[in-house]
Amino acid sequence: MRNTDNSLRALVEKWLSPSEANPARVACFRHLANRKGCLVQVESVHPTRRLSIAFFRHGDGAWYVFPPVAA
């Protein structure tokens, strides 16, 4: 069974703390050139700032804030 602590949803909740007043939304989605993963940029707008984080899906299916190493 896969660890859900590394799901994209869990990471967005951890890093951006979305709420009904400040929801998170996908701002960008791209497949990586090597087709070994993808990039999802998620943002949340708060009254005083805009938060945006890029998440990378690696070949093992896990999500991280750093890109996968090119082979």
Rank of each mutant, 00 (worst) to 15 (best):
S44N: 09
P47L: 10
P18S: 06
A27K: 04
E13V: 06
C28W: 14
R9E: 05
V42A: 07
F55W: 02
F56D: 01
P47H: 13
R30N: 14
W15A: 05
L11C: 06
N34K: 11
A21Y: 05
L8H: 11
A21R: 13
R9C: 08
D5P: 00
H58C: 07
V26C: 12
R49S: 14
Q41T: 12
R49P: 02
C28L: 15
D60S: 05
V69W: 03
F55Y: 09
V12Y: 03
S44D: 07
A54T: 09
F56Q: 02
P68T: 06
T48L: 12
L39S: 06
L11G: 02
K36G: 07
G59V: 11
D60L: 00
P47D: 15
R9S: 14
F66I: 06
R9W: 08
K36P: 00
R9Q: 14
E13K: 04
N6V: 06
L51Y: 02
Y64E: 00
V12A: 09
A70S: 13
D60R: 00
D60W: 01
V26Y: 04
G37L: 03
R50I: 10
Y64R: 13
A54Y: 10
H31Q: 14
R25K: 12
S7Q: 10
S17P: 00
N34C: 10
F55V: 02
A21N: 15
P68N: 09
V26E: 15
F55P: 01
Y64V: 03
G37M: 05
A10M: 10
D5V: 06
L51S: 05
E20Q: 13
D5G: 09
N6R: 11
P68K: 00
A27D: 07
A71S: 14
D5T: 14
F56M: 01
A54M: 10
